[in-house]
Design a binder for these strands. Structure first.
Lengths: 254, 254
DNA sequence: ATCCCATATTCTTGTATGCCGAACATCGCT
DNA sequence: AGCGATGTTCGGCATACAAGAATATGGGAT
């Protein structure tokens, strides 16, 4: 039962993998799933039935399976319990109101970075991001803000991965990105100049906890047309200031 | 492996039960969990480790376990894929704008009813409801709208459960509620007159699908002070009208 | 209608696998 | 230090699970 120094229960592991394939596919049949996770059909069927009984997957009228509403419930609990989010909320709302632009909050979790909150301005821009999604580390202001402060070996591991080109401005060259990140660290903020979506610019800053560790980041996103260079500088100051406030509320000293 | 005509995989079943206890407890240790679900400590440990490896639970700095961020991600997918929600959204937004009050959308799912969407007005009232939560069937307008149209035996099963008293106006007497529900059915809408939260009134109406079956409901919630009796009647008409529109878009005839 | 193919679901069986009890490690508390 | 209550590992046995095959079901094409 012990595998790689960890107690992994095979059937549970497999069942959870089933849930995860639904991240990519909205609906799937037994056979499809069994192929995707490389498992015997009847084995898959048993696991799926269990997930169904518990409400973790549902059956559509067409007979295909899909994710169940319980996941909505559990996801909601997660969201509400993220105390960083609760702490940051009011300050981010303030920031949102001040510039009337959208704010995104992201958190690091075991090597992954997720969007966990969003404060939308009334004149909201079209946004591809949504709460619960993983952050594109190399192509977003928040991602770069976090990358910049990672331990070197972790950062290098990320730089070694294929860097997806979202727009013509996306930095896809590892060494160029490495240089860029050291600049980010020097400045204390990261810019995203239409690197993930054309026409959108963001300013991202890291959030620290009481140990000084970077545990997340937030950003202010705006259409490029609304962000002149002096406006940009103004926002940078405000965003950095808010970040410091949030970090302090989380116990960060100085 | 076949139990009650269903193929249930024991360990998966147990692992999912572990996730579910976290609906009630924000953080738990191995021993606590094993007591709650009545399982051997080391068995619990194995399941928990698997959940942890996969990101379904996390470990807090204090060593306790809590729900993992993956659930946030999966919950998000569920939300986006609820097509009833997508269909209803624009109409509910229209309604929200018209009266500048908050709209809640709920859906039935295998005997449970969940809040799945919310359209908030600018002058939003304090609300205890949130997306992903289960609906209080006997004490909310949406809950009663759904209860009223349930098959009798299902309705009776609900009436037989303890009816929690939220405010002095909450109907906690089963026979009184039964009568109330027949009135709801006659009227085609349900009122919540401060029955779940003092000072809040709601008007709830059922949504039907192409088979005519009630599959959900939505409501308009407002502070009692803003809802005069003529205003109430006006809103009732609008809400019923919107409900019909939503149902039609889902294929309901007439 | 009929066949055919693909898919869902059930059955059976051997054995790997997950469960348990107990031992060990770690931590916080007095 | 010592105690009590946790988290974590170990080893053996029995059971619960995975796999393959067999059987339903259903939808499309002819």
């Amino acid at each position: 039962m012990i595998k790689n120094n960890k107690a992994i229960v095979q059937s549970v592991d497999r069942a959870l993998s089933i849930l995860q394939v639904f991240a990519q596919y909205e609906e799937l049949g037994v056979t499809e799933i069994s192929k995707l996770i490389n498992l015997n059909k009847s084995t898959t069927y048993g696991l799926l039935s269990t997930l169904f009984e518990k409400g973790y997957v549902d059956k559509k009228p067409n007979g295909k399976y899909c994710l169940g509403l319980i996941l909505l419930e559990l996801g909601q609990y997660v969201q509400n319990r993220l105390n960083v989010r609760n702490t940051a909320r009011p300050l981010l709302e303030e920031l949102c109101e001040k510039y009337d632009e959208t704010i995104h909050l992201v958190l690091c979790n075991r090597g992954e970075v997720y969007y966990v909150d969003k404060v939308e301005s009334a004149r909201s821009i079209v946004n591809i991001t949504q709460v619960g999604k993983k952050v594109a580390l190399h192509a977003s202001s928040v991602g770069k803000a976090i990358l910049a402060y990672m331990p070197v070996e972790e950062q290098e591991r990320e730089l070694a991965l294929p860097l997806k080109q979202y727009t013509t401005y996306t930095i896809t060259n590892p060494s160029e990105l490495r240089e860029h990140l050291s600049l980010v660290k020097e400045n204390g903020y990261a810019l995203d100049m239409e690197e993930i979506e054309l026409g959108i610019r963001c300013i991202g800053v890291p959030i620290r906890n009481y140990t000084g560790e970077v545990i997340g980041a937030f950003s202010c996103s705006a259409p490029a047309t609304r962000v002149s260079s002096e406006k940009l500088n103004e926002i940078i100051v405000a965003v950095k200031d808010t970040a410091l406030n949030v970090s302090r509320r989380l116990g960060y000293k100085i």
